[in-house]
Amino acid sequence: MFETIIFSLLNGLVYGLLLFLLSSGLTLIFSMMGVLNLAHAGFYMLSAYFAYSISIHLGFWYGLLFAPLIVGFIGAMVERYGLRKVHKFGHVPELIFTFGVAFLLEELVQFVWGRNQLAYNKPEILEGSLFTLFGADFPIYKMFMLIVSVVIFIILLSVLKYTRTGLIIRAAVGHPNVVGMLGHNVPLIFMVTFGVGTALAGIAGAIAGPVLGTYPGMASGLGGIMFVVVIFGGLGSLGGAFIASLMIGLIQTFAIAIDASLSDVFLLMDIVITEQTFMYDIWVTSLSQVAPLIPYLMMVVMLIFRPAGLMGARES
């Protein structure tokens, strides 16, 4: 019992921080431009593929360095030559455009790298386990993911809080028009933010590829959860995204570990569920089975009762 809690806690933390790496860029873009970038997870996947290709030629570390840079550049170009063009038609075409990019990225990845999962491996230094607790191993690589995520979080926070660029970006999040009036090049800020945001997703892709698997479905697997984080945490709130990431990471890993269902609760009340009971399959569905559902349920409930999210200042 105790070891399950410890390991769920650690795994949830790793997963949650990875989610934060993805959603931090997404929430910056969302709050500044009002566009929910549906292709964000696509860039995450693209980066994993680039990192794989670079890693087989130059090694893992070069992949980790260059893949996010390339993806960030591609992201900036998508903003410059795609999104900016669609912007004048309104928010709905923008959403549709990013949906199209997501669709295209998934097909493009299959076109170039094929449909199978790639053997994107961890570097040798990060193989093996860091410590063994109650007979279960905790891999070094997960600790590495944890450290990278935390370092990126600290860098991002300090850039936003303590530099002039960060000041302008924070201003542009809330009041892009006023920032434009003050003489800053708002389209350039948008482009750079979009590029940096996708690069952050790129880092997440490059470090997640070896553990979560590098395959064409990796974007749609994580994409939905990412929107949940951004919306649950609140529009434009990095703090909210941070809390929501950890919450969802922890809830999902704990839910997977728990094999109880409603029928167990009924059993405590001396009600036995059999196959003849009305709506039998609802009562016997275990918590681990519905774990993938929980985030979406959280999002829908949040959107109904508080569309601004946990810490969001305004509605979309």
């Binding site: 928010h91 999002m299 569309p307 979309s316």
Partner: peptide
Amino acid sequence: AGTVFAMI
């Protein structure tokens, strides 16, 4: 309407 509707 808008993004909230789309996300729900």
